[in-house]
Design a protein around this nucleic acid. Structure first.
Length: 600
RNA sequence: GGCCCCGUAGUUCAACUGGAUAGAAUAUCAGAUUUCGGCUCUGAGGGUUGGGGGUUCGAAUCCUCCCGGGGUCACCA
């Protein structure tokens, strides 16, 4: 049986045809789809069939229909041992035998729930991070990176080939500002000579530029210029603009300095990415792509998708779609942001022909831009334009308000990770069971815990919502947190270490404790959940599932003895179950980029 | 002002995309360990889902009008 079918052959899938056959024989109707759901905790049963939707095709009292289907199922399915009806809800009791069989046939390993991509299947490209090269990464980038990376992992686990990419905003006036400041005030400083991380060094000069600029504006105003005039005439601004012109005309000295300083930044970014645990398969640089797209606009103009205004600029009219008119080419024939994004999208498909979709991880302030971009690409008739997604996310707020890099109220990405590690160290020193660990191993563990806390905290919330981030108080190590999950995993590993007997063979039939049944049900739901998370690009779904799983395991652990039970078969089964839950935790966490320790 | 997103226990988040009596965590209070890791478990209190109207068997979810917060309406990226 192919892997995919096997993974989805869960109880819903088994009952589906039987219920349909039952409805056919009782009421003589063909029903297309049925709505199954997990039975709520307050009711008896395991699986619930919602009868209301059937009323469209079957006239009658929902409770009576439920009763009839229930009776039919008890007679015709070996797995349904009983049922009860509450209003239009048919609650079915599923036999222990079914769950045990399901568990025994499960592939129990670290790849639990994953589907291998088909060799000739469609690929998807996920863009995230997309930094500017004039300042270091901050908390907002962390949310972006974690989301993009996690969504990539989820898509890959759901059976798609994934290319992770970023577009680096490496050109423009902002980088010229850092360059000018470095020329004036740098005295030849380099990351090597100062020991400062490259992105931080360049970022410092960006701040330095801004200080100088403000002073110059002030003195110009004192000399009698009006504020608006002064803000345009500050000498250092004019220098930066002149430098941009030189860069665009390819002036060798300017380009050389630009390359050098950008290289410093990239080395700094690479360190941050590595610390954060994210990576990329390919990169795009705006200096390469900012001129793309013009020929496609020209082509679209011929085909009547765009139109030309009297001044020569080119536009698209989206008023029929409820949007505005949007410029796609300036009067002087140069590209705008939109032109460039059109060109870059097309370029990516050309570079990787197996791609049939793109995901852009970009903040929600660009919602409108992407709406327009996607619409334009659709109008241009690209087939892959049906599969464009803007993974939009809300801002990260601080208790003091917005982050502003110029005012120094940003939370730096590197600093934050260090702080998380420090907190983990403090707590673990008190509570950890780390006898025999070397200092190096301990430090590695603190890093895993600190980062796990940060990642889980950010990924568990719906991307659309703003996050209020209090670095001091928000990160907790108890309750619904990353370390809570890691702790449970570590505890399972502790049991496996102590289980010094062979537990690999499946045990035969035995009665299940309700807590055991709960755990198997959760395992059963995972592969489908993974597909849903992939479709909705939602790491939060995975995070919340992981938490449910861990909670259910802790409850099981508390009420049911594992190694202490006298019955050998039960002991074996419970160790197997623990192991399987461990695999599931590890698998789910890996989709969030969270590592799990064997001790902590 | 037009358009888009958000509003759920004191606080931070859920709610299987229209399903049952809206759930967790946290904080507070009360309990549990001859056991495998107490960073655990069990329980209590805490809600007019911002407000009004509508759609239907059924609404936090869909429609509509208000209120509040944010974003966006650049020939910037």
């Amino acid at each position: 049986m192919p892997l995919i079918e096997k993974q989805f052959q869960v109880i819903h899938g088994i009952l589906d045809p039987i219920v349909k056959a039952g409805l056919k024989s009782i009421y003589d109707v063909e029903v297309e789809s049925l709505e199954f759901q997990e039975t709520r905790k307050d009711f008896e049963g395991d699986v619930t069939l919602v009868v209301f939707p059937l009323l469209r095709q079957i006239k009658g009292n929902p409770a009576a229909i439920a009763e009839a289907v229930g009776n039919y199922l008890v007679e015709n399915s070996e797995f349904v041992s009983g049922f009860n009806v509450i209003k239009g809800f048919l609650n079915l009791v599923i036999t222990d035998e079914y769950y045990l069989n399901y568990f025994n046939e499960l592939d129990k390993n670290e790849d639990f729930g994953r589907i291998e991509p088909a060799p000739d299947g469609d690929a998807i490209m996920v863009e995230y991070s997309s930094p500017n090269t004039n300042k270091p990464l901050h908390l907002g980038h962390i949310r972006n990176n974690l989301l993009g990376y996690s969504v990539s992992e989820i898509l890959a686990a759901s059976g798609k080939k994934v290319y992770k990419t970023q577009i680096i905003n490496d050109r423009g006036i902002h980088i010229c500002k850092s360059m000018i400041a470095w020329q004036h005030f740098g005295n030849g400083e380099t990351p090597q000579s100062t020991g400062i991380k490259g992105d931080k060094l360049v970022g410092n000069y960006y701040v330095r530029y801004d200080q100088e600029y403000k002073e110059q504006v002030k003195s110009l105003i004192n000399e009698g210029l009006d504020p608006e005039e002064a803000s345009k005439k500050a000498p250092i601004l004019l220098e930066a603009q002149e430098m941009l012109r030189k860069w665009e005309s390819g002036d060798p000295d300017t380009v050389a300095l630009w390359k050098t300083m950008n290289q410093w930044v990239y080395e700094g970014f690479d360190e941050t990415y590595e610390a954060l645990g994210v990576d990329f398969d390919t990169k795009y640089y705006e200096s390469d792509t900012y001129l793309l797209g013009k020929e496609f606009v020209a082509e679209g103009l011929e085909r009547g998708i765009f139109y030309r205004k009297d001044d020569g600029s080119v536009w698209i009219d989206l008023t029929e779609e409820g949007l505005d008119e949007k410029i796609v080419l300036r009067a002087d024939g140069t590209a705008v942001y939109m032109t460039q994004d059109i060109g870059t999208a097309i370029q990516r498909i050309a570079d990787f022909p197996d791609i049939n979709g793109l995901v852009y991880t970009v903040g929600n302030e660009q919602d409108y831009h992407f709406k327009v971009l996607f619409l334009i690409l659709k109008k241009m008739g690209f087939e892959w334009a049906q599969n464009l997604h803007h993974l939009s996310y809300g801002m990260v707020d601080l208790p003091e308000g917005k982050m502003k890099s110029r005012e120094g109220t940003v939370v730096d990405a590197d600093d934050l990770m260090t702080e998380m590690t420090n907190t983990a160290r403090d707590i673990s020193r008190e509570l950890g069971k780390l006898d025999g660990y070397s200092e190096v191993e301990k430090e590695e563990l603190y890093r895993i815990i600190g980062l796990g806390a940060l990642k889980y905290y950010i990924l568990k919330v719906d991307p659309k919502k703003r996050i209020l981030f209090d670095p001091k108080e928000s990160i907790d190590f108890n309750g619904n947190t990353g370390p809570f999950i890691q702790y449970t995993y570590a505890r399972i590993q502790s049991i496996l270490r102590k289980a010094d007997f062979d537990y690999s063979e499946p045990v035969g039939q035995l009665g299940l404790d309700p807590k055991e049944k709960d755990l198997i049900k959760l395992l059963e739901g995972y592969p489908e959940l993974l597909q849903t998370a992939a479709k909705s690009l939602s790491p939060a779904l995975i995070a919340n599932y992981t938490y449910d799983l861990v909670k259910a395991y802790n409850s099981f652990y508390q009420t049911v003895p594992i190694l202490g039970v006298t019955n050998e078969r039960e002991k074996k089964f419970r160790v197997q179950l623990s192991e399987a839950i461990g695999f599931a935790i590890k698998s789910a966490c890996s989709l969030l980029g969270i590592e799990v320790p064997t001790r902590m």
